[in-house]
């Protein structure tokens, strides 16, 4: 529809061009300019709805609809277009067959894996030989943020030291998930700077995830191949809480909470 009118491009071509242009725009903007391609599964659905939208715009008036389907109708009905018709009627099934063939062809890529990034936590978890009520668990050091800012900064610094000694190899010294070992891991370590990670979560959730690591993921978060260690075997409770303080402090995010302050 953006196509210039003065060239008098046929409606059908306009519609096809519009879809193609939008597709190209997605590709150019996300793949090349931003360097973050849209996953194929999402792209399919995006394009499905783009096509629906284009269809809606091109068919909501009678004239436009007639113009749009005229070439198709002519192709099927017009006796003078016999040659073209035969070619098209050959190409369409061939293309369908080709697509089916490509689809059925075994490929060597690992099967698609889904990870629920934030699996629902259990209501309580057994950590350090104790049972923690995750619904009401809070960071014991969080209170110092207001009560004793100096002590809080000290705790954050201690958490930072723990982080640098243990976590940064994978999660990166900028907390961006790009540590020295990150490239070797799949799934890749989380980027805490992203607004979609720790900013969405409560501190108790982080405590649970850090303490139980990859092996502690619930079933719905399968496959359990996350290489996150079970940190309760290496760090003390207090150390984990301090690291959590550090994560939020450094990234500037706030832990999720349900109460208004």
């Amino acid at each position: 529809m953006m196509a210039a009118r003065r060239f008098k491009i046929p409606r059908l071509a306009q519609a096809v061009l519009t879809v193609a242009l939008i597709y190209a725009a997605f590709r150019v903007v996300f793949d090349i300019i931003l360097g973050q391609p849209i996953p194929a599964s999402l792209m399919t659905m995006y394009m499905f709805f783009v096509v629906s939208g284009v269809f809606m715009v091109f068919t909501f008036t009678e004239e436009s609809t007639q113009e749009l389907v005229a070439p198709i109708r002519a192709l099927v009905e017009d006796p003078s277009k016999k040659l073209v018709r035969n070619i098209v009627f050959l190409i369409v099934p061939l293309a369908a067959a080709g697509l089916t063939y490509m689809k059925m062809l075994p490929d060597f890529a690992a099967p698609l894996e889904l990870r629920t990034i934030h699996p629902a936590p259990p209501s309580s978890a057994e950590l350090y030989g104790k049972r923690f009520d995750l619904l009401n668990l809070t960071n014991p050091f969080r209170k110092f943020e207001k009560a004793d800012p100096e002590k809080f900064q000290q705790l954050v610094a201690e958490g930072g030291a723990v982080y640098m000694a243990n976590c940064q190899y994978c999660h990166g010294d900028k907390l961006d998930g790009k540590g020295p070992y990150a490239a070797a891991l799949n799934p890749t370590p989380l980027n805490f700077q992203d607004v979609g990670t720790i900013a969405q979560l409560q501190e108790s959730f982080l405590f649970w995830r850090i303490a139980t690591g990859g092996p502690g993921l619930p079933k719905e978060a399968a496959p359990w191949i996350s290489s996150m260690p079970v940190w309760q075997q290496f760090l003390s409770e207090d150390e984990i809480w301090k690291v959590i303080l550090f994560l939020y402090d450094y990234t500037g995010h706030r832990p999720r909470s349900w109460e208004h302050e």
Partner: peptide, 23 residues
């Protein structure tokens, strides 16, 4: 929020998060 990614896509994105679509 959670994207279905093939392994190549995962590598290309550098993680399970999409920088621009994630938010």
């Amino acid at each position: 929020h959670t994207l279905v990614l093939t392994n190549e896509e995962l590598k290309a994105l550098g993680g399970p998060y999409h920088k621009y679509l994630g938010p």
